[in-house]
Amino acid sequence: HSLPGKKTTNKVVSHLVLVEPGEIYASPDLNLPDSDLRTLTTLCELINRELLITIGWAKHVPGFSVLSLADQMSLLQSAWMEVLVLGIVYRSLEMDNELAVAENFLLSREECRSSGLLNLHSVLLQLVRKYRKTKLDKEEFVTLKAMALANSDSSSIENVEAVLNLQDRLHEALQDYEREHHAEDPHRSGKLLMTLPLLRQTANEAVRTFCQIRLEGRIPMHKLFLEMLEAKM
């Protein structure tokens, strides 16, 4: 776990910073030729590991574990790609037109083009530019990520009130944090919330892309990734 970047009095935000997973590294199969096949295989293996980490992380989001198991599953099945996309976008803030899928796995526009990911590259970079312009910081990133999970608009929630409470708690935490750290811009939390539609749109595009890859059947995909993709179909 990484250490908090700055002190905040909001307990939810500081807890989310504390439970934020550490850096992730790709493990490309060097027996494969350096090709789109290797890029996509590396990417799919990475996503499977990220999913495992995301499920472990979700359990530490304050208020998540008290939901019923069915509702925890519904939130994760709806929001997992938004959580993953936000992580890639945050890692890519310092990059120059490259996507930092992992610390040692950067994807250029050209690599994305030859792997059939050009459209995904474009929409992800649109989100990167938006957050770069806003100067999204780590505390805001972790809070938005938890909000994406809680705000997944799943149609099969059993205890709607409990999920709404979770959303309210996270919203309050974000407002609290912005009052403390960005008092100069009273609209900042609203601005951040207004990025969530583009995050949803980008995640949907990513799901479409990987469903297509799955259909083509050229790339090996691990069981958890397949299960989560199937939940989106």
Binding site: I55, G56, L69, M73, Q77, K223, L224, A231
Partner: peptide
């Protein structure tokens, strides 16, 4: 739950060996 057994198990128990 049957269709989403890995997620179910991960949330309930911990890490399975066949991910």
């Amino acid at each position: 739950t049957e269709r989403h057994k890995i997620l179910h198990r991960l949330l309930q128990e911990g890490s399975p060996s066949d991910i």
